[in-house]
Amino acid sequence: MSLIPDGLIKKCPFCKNVLLASNIGKYKVCPKCGYGFRITAKERADLIFDDFCEMDAKITVPEYYFNKTEYVKKIEKSKKITNMNESVLTGKATLGNIQIMAGIMDPFWIMGSLGKATGEKITRMFEYATKNKMPVVMFTASGGARMQEGMNALMQMVKVSGAVSDHDKAGLLYIVVLCNPTMGGVTASFGMQGDITLAEPHSLVGFAGKRVIEQTIREKTPEDFQEAEKVMKYGFIDQIVERSDLNTVLKRILFLHEGR
């Protein structure tokens, strides 16, 4: 009896469509509903940008957390899967001959969680952009603040928000692309501070999880609760953009902002 190889078939988490993995294409999108399967930060950089040069690649989790055995195991596993030292990829990128600073959170790096090193990398990215008068494009994909780092993780919300504020005061453009999922402290800070907010189809966007909210209010939430499309109806998102169109849409926004 022959065995079916792993990864041959995929099931869309949104529409439940079962399909061959080869049918999701290079953008890894469900052909039926447009749901974007999770991809690494480096895969996204290759898909979206015309050119990308990574910065601050060596920044990683501070050594004083290395006494937490289970945490260290998760760090090493994440590094192996993503080939990154932290949950966000930052650097200089080019879109249509316009140079920008870009940040991409990686859902495979402890669920794109916001730790101390993550906040440091994003803050440096905004500071560089402010100093050099550059727009910023940020792709968020995170479960929120990293619980293993406690208060240090939560303080990154304030730290990054301060850098975003300085960038805004300099009159510079900040575009956010909400990917699946964008939750917790990331939503409560830089995930919702963009001048323009885009989202991939059917992305989960919110603060607390659905189960926690239902237990708190003692009511069932709507089936489409926290879907990007629902969030857009209430004015928190400007446009839903399919992954294959992001390069074109971002170029158009940047061209308009540059007055071209």
Rank of each mutant, 00 (worst) to 15 (best):
M1D: 12
S2D: 13
L3N: 14
G7Q: 14
G7D: 14
L8K: 15
C12Y: 11
C15W: 13
K16Y: 14
K16L: 12
N17H: 15
I24V: 15
I24Y: 07
K26N: 09
K28A: 13
C30K: 06
K32W: 11
Y35C: 09
Y35M: 10
F37V: 07
A41W: 00
A41D: 02
K42E: 08
R44H: 13
D46S: 15
D51L: 09
D51M: 08
I59Q: 04
I59E: 07
V61G: 00
P62L: 06
N67D: 15
T69Q: 09
V72K: 13
K74L: 12
E76D: 11
E76M: 13
T82Y: 02
V88A: 03
L89P: 01
A93G: 10
L95W: 00
G96N: 05
I98L: 04
I98G: 00
A102E: 02
G103I: 01
M105H: 03
D106A: 04
P107W: 01
F108R: 02
F108W: 06
W109M: 01
M111T: 08
L114H: 03
K121N: 05
M125A: 06
E127F: 04
E127L: 09
N132W: 07
N132Q: 11
N132E: 14
K133S: 15
M134C: 04
V136L: 02
V137N: 00
V137E: 00
F139Y: 13
F139M: 06
T140Y: 09
G143W: 03
A145I: 06
R146T: 07
M147K: 14
M147D: 12
E149I: 01
E149G: 02
G150E: 05
N152M: 07
N152W: 05
M155S: 10
V158I: 10
K159T: 12
V160N: 00
S161H: 04
S161Y: 04
G162Y: 01
H167W: 06
A170M: 11
A170W: 06
G171A: 08
L172A: 00
L172H: 00
L173P: 00
I175V: 15
V177H: 03
P181T: 09
T182W: 08
T187K: 09
A188K: 06
S189F: 03
F190I: 05
F190N: 02
G191L: 09
M192K: 07
T197V: 15
L198I: 04
L198G: 03
L198T: 03
A199E: 05
E200W: 05
E200S: 11
V205F: 08
G206N: 11
G209A: 10
K210M: 08
R211S: 13
V212C: 06
E214S: 07
Q215N: 11
I217H: 03
E219Y: 05
P222D: 06
F225D: 10
E227M: 13
V231Y: 12
V231N: 10
M232A: 14
G235Y: 14
I237C: 13
I240M: 12
R243Y: 08
S244K: 13
S244L: 05
V249F: 05
L250M: 13
K251Y: 03
I253K: 02
I253H: 02
L254E: 00
L254W: 00
F255G: 01
F255N: 12
E258Y: 14
